[in-house]
Write a protein that binds this DNA or RNA. Structure first.
Length: 550
RNA sequence: GUCCACAUAGCUCAGCUGGAUAGAGCAACGGCCUUCUAAGCCGUAGGUCAUGGGUUCGAAUCCCUUUGUGGACGCCA
């Protein structure tokens, strides 16, 4: 809740108490900015909410409250409209206070403490180290990155984690595929497994190994070689993934390996714990977990007939390990193709006695790449699925990020590569960056200005829009963090940029003679620049000082 | 077949713990550069919020029906 809302609510509460002798809570009162500014600066529906209790029609209730509210100098005007909305017009002083708040807090403006004391671990991307990251991963990476930026800005203690699946069958295939490609470089035939990896990146890695070690591995014991190629494969694939993510402005705090959960005995101890709690049973030579007792539609296998473990087992250990590190809230971002896995994992955590909703899984819907209205399935260059690297090269990091983060994740996304690539007004990311650059160039022309205690010359409708929007920002950040919805930041950016462009167009500072008016407007613009830059920072998009047209 | 999402302007999408006349960008049409960057501004047009019902002072928003689209239903990961 921002300062203006705080004040409004407390004033409304006092008035209702005085008129009707009813004690309201903050949550009973909704204060919002009306869609149509002609209604007022802010409005509340409190009269409508009291209708039932008082058995009077809402307008009558509103009239009595307004009579009381009008006595307060915080308002320029208070009116009743529609079915019983109370609309406020604020006094100038109440309004412009935010300008100095922003100037003072600078880079910290927008940060809030709504998540203070909460420890939350967010796991995302977690792609197998068996190939390049593709479009779906890119969406998940940006989304996770933005969520964690928001959580950090809202005071949560948050960890960004990547779970590395380096333990299962697919890694064996990686080793074999890699060796096959390696042999190929020496003209030796070695079968590439059918469910192995056929993509170009395996060939590239094989070449890298050849450059480093030459033919050294052709002559070692197959068992040893198998393990070595496993290791090399994982290491090189992971390095590539990390580099691609980093180029994409996505950094992780923690990379947790599936294999290490076996090595440290975590998998074993988790199994023992579940057995001890009576959550498992043997059937058909396999070990099962009773997830049906906790909302799953069938029980799941932990240990297969052949004695090896399913993917599920170390993953349970993985989640237990998260909790043991003191994170009380776990969030995973999974692709839509994994949504059937959700009840299973949540069921396992429930079974182990964790509070409901300890784990929440956000599902990232599919991405389709589109160009000129047609779906683009494969990269023209490589013939394989389009990678995150190609995407960044093609459209640029800022545009790619913005496209992904500006849409809610629960709907299928058509990524129009033509629009993302275009450096025109079709591309919303430039719109926002341009708004920032325009203020910057203005501030370069007028580098000297001083904040004042009261902005008595500010108060035009367009200035009010800027101030209201700026004032909302910390609350929007807190809400976007809580609901894990970074696209709300994009909505903010878009609207705010629009106000900035509109203001920029209608008030030319150069045409003014009044030095004090210029000064006050520069303060306002500087505050806008700070707010916009911070907002862009929350979604990992740059805020350039100038836009270079090509 | 069972389960889970989703359906809003020509296109891509916001709005969803119920609130005033459902919004934005693009595309279309008409204006605005001798003044801080026209990657911009101002205006016009564009809607049965998939369908049918229910809940109530009030529904795009909550509940149910039907249709359509995508996904999941492995001792794969």
């Amino acid at each position: 809740m921002n300062k203006i809302e705080e004040s409004l609510k407390s004033i409304v509460k006092d008035s209702v108490k005085k008129v009707y002798d009813i004690e309201l809570l903050d949550t009973d009162i909704v204060v919002e900015i009306p869609k149509d500014p002609s209604f007022g600066d802010y409005s509340t529906n409190v009269a409508m909410r009291l209708t039932k209790q008082l058995r009077q029609n809402p307008r009558a209730v509103a009239e009595k409250i307004v009579e009381e509210l009008k006595k307060n100098s915080y308002f320029e005007d208070v009116t009743i409209a529609g079915p019983g909305f109370i609309n406020f017009r604020l006094s100038k002083k109440a309004f412009t206070r935010v300008i100095n708040d922003v100037l003072l807090q600078n880079n910290n403006y927008g940060k809030n403490s709504s998540g203070k004391g909460l420890r939350i671990l967010v796991e995302y991307v977690s792609a197998n180290p068996t190939g390049d990251l593709h479009l779906g991963h890119a969406r998940g990476a940006v989304w996770g990155d933005c969520i964690t930026r928001l959580l950090n800005a809202s005071g949560y203690d948050c960890l960004r984690e990547y779970y590395v699946n380096d333990g299962g069958h697919q890694i064996d295939m990686l080793s074999e595929s890699l060796y096959s490609r390696y042999c190929e470089l020496f003209g030796i035939e070695y079968p590439l497994p059918e469910d192995g990896y056929h993509a170009q990146d395996i060939i590239d890695i094989a070449k890298q190994i050849k450059e480093e070690d030459d033919d050294k591995w052709l002559h070692v014991d197959p068992k040893e070689r198998f393990l070595i190629f496993k290791d090399k494969g994982i290491k090189l694939e992971l390095a590539k993934i990390e580099r691609d993510l980093s180029n994409y402005n996505c950094e992780f705090d923690s990379w947790i390996s599936e294999k290490s959960l076996y090595d440290t005995g975590y998998v074993q101890s988790t199994l023992e714990l579940m057995e001890k709690m009576g959550l498992t049973y043997e059937q058909d030579g396999a070990l099962w977990l009773k997830t049906t007792l906790y909302g799953d539609d069938k029980d799941r296998v932990l240990r297969k007939q052949d004695g090896s473990y399913t993917y599920f087992t170390p993953d349970i250990a993985n989640h237990i390990y998260k909790l043991e590190r003191g994170y009380t809230k776990l969030v995973n971002l999974w692709g839509a193709d994994h949504h059937g896995y959700v009840p299973r994992m949540c069921g396992a955590l429930d079974a182990l006695g964790n509070p409901k909703n300890t784990l929440e899984v956000d599902i990232i819907q599919m991405v389709r790449l589109v160009e000129n209205g047609k779906e683009v399935k494969m990269s023209k260059r490589t013939g394989n699925a389009i990678t995150i690297r190609e995407l960044c090269e093609e459209v640029g990091v800022d545009a790619a990020r913005y496209t992904f983060v500006s849409r809610a994740v629960d709907t299928h996304l058509d990524f129009d590569i033509g629009i993302a690539k275009s450096k025109t007004s079709e591309n919303p990311v430039y719109y926002a960056q341009y708004a920032h650059a325009r203020i910057c160039s203005l501030l370069k022309e007028y580098p000297i200005f001083t904040p004042v205690p009261s902005y008595d010359l500010i108060g035009d409708e367009k200035e009010k829009l800027l101030i209201k929007q700026m004032n909302e920002f910390p609350e929007i950040v807190a809400d976007a963090a809580l609901t894990r919805a970074p696209h709300k930041i994009c909505n903010f950016i878009q609207k705010f940029s629009q106000y900035i462009h509109s203001y920029y167009g209608s008030f030319k500072i150069k045409q003014l003679d009044n030095q004090e008016l210029i000064n006050q407007r520069l303060c306002l613009l500087k505050a806008c620049k700070i707010t916009l830059k911070n907002a862009l920072g929350l979604i990992g998009v740059s805020a350039p000082e100038s836009m270079n047209r090509e």
